[in-house]
């Protein structure tokens, strides 16, 4: 069979397009359960912080520990086939954590709510940056999370924790379900 240059070019373009779409959707399905999980963590963490403000530190320690443990469990298959690219993700997470801790140390917050808003902003920025490389839906999620956090912090300061529990946590859960869709 003889294939012309045009036919070959068109076939290669199709391959590239389909391959990219498949890879993006695959990443979305891997990220989706983590978003739903962290949406639930936010709901319980912020919700309980609103109900028991004096226990905020302990609440977040427990909520984050449970969230991290389940996240690692969910990602176990991915870690099994660990390669250079996946180690890069690990280093990126470590860098973001270090940046967050260092920023809080350099610019200590005057109120607990500052840190409660700062961390979601770091997470939102991370989603946007990851999305620029790996998929538009993450850019939308990051932008939405950041906007909702700022909205709650500046306009609903006294109900910020409740806002983040319902709207922030809810947005993550819905975004997780959205990423599962083709």
């Amino acid at each position: 069979m003889t294939i012309s240059k045009e036919q070959a070019k068109s076939a290669l373009q199709d391959l590239q397009q389909v391959g990219d779409r498949s890879a993006t959707l695959y990443k979305y399905t891997r990220i989706s359960p983590h978003l739903i999980l962290w949406g639930c963590v936010w709901m319980s963490g912020y919700g309980l912080s609103d109900a028991f403000p004096s226990q905020t530190g302990l609440i977040w320690l427990i909520a984050n520990s449970i969230g991290a443990a389940i996240s690692i469990y969910l990602a176990r298959a991915w870690f099994r086939g660990i390669g250079q690219a996946n180690w890069r993700v690990g280093y990126a997470i470590l860098s973001i954590l270090t940046f967050t801790v260092a920023t809080v140390a350099i610019l200590p917050p005057h109120a607990g709510r500052q840190i409660a808003a700062f961390i979601p902003m770091v997470i939102a920025t991370t989603y946007v940056l990851v999305g620029i490389w790996h998929g538009r839906r993450l850019v939308i999620l990051g932008t939405l999370t950041g906007a909702l956090t700022l909205l709650g912090y500046f306009l609903l300061y006294s109900h910020f924790n409740l806002w983040m529990a319902v709207v922030g946590g809810g947005a993550l859960v819905l975004a997780g379900a959205w990423l599962k869709r083709v």
Partner: peptide, 22 residues
């Protein structure tokens, strides 16, 4: 493989990490 739909099927599957299913 060259048939257009089959080419797309193979491209979609090849884009996944080894051993992953669609």
């Amino acid at each position: 493989i060259h048939q257009p739909v089959r080419l797309k099927i193979m491209a979609a599957l090849k884009a996944l990490p080894r051993g992953e299913q669609l």
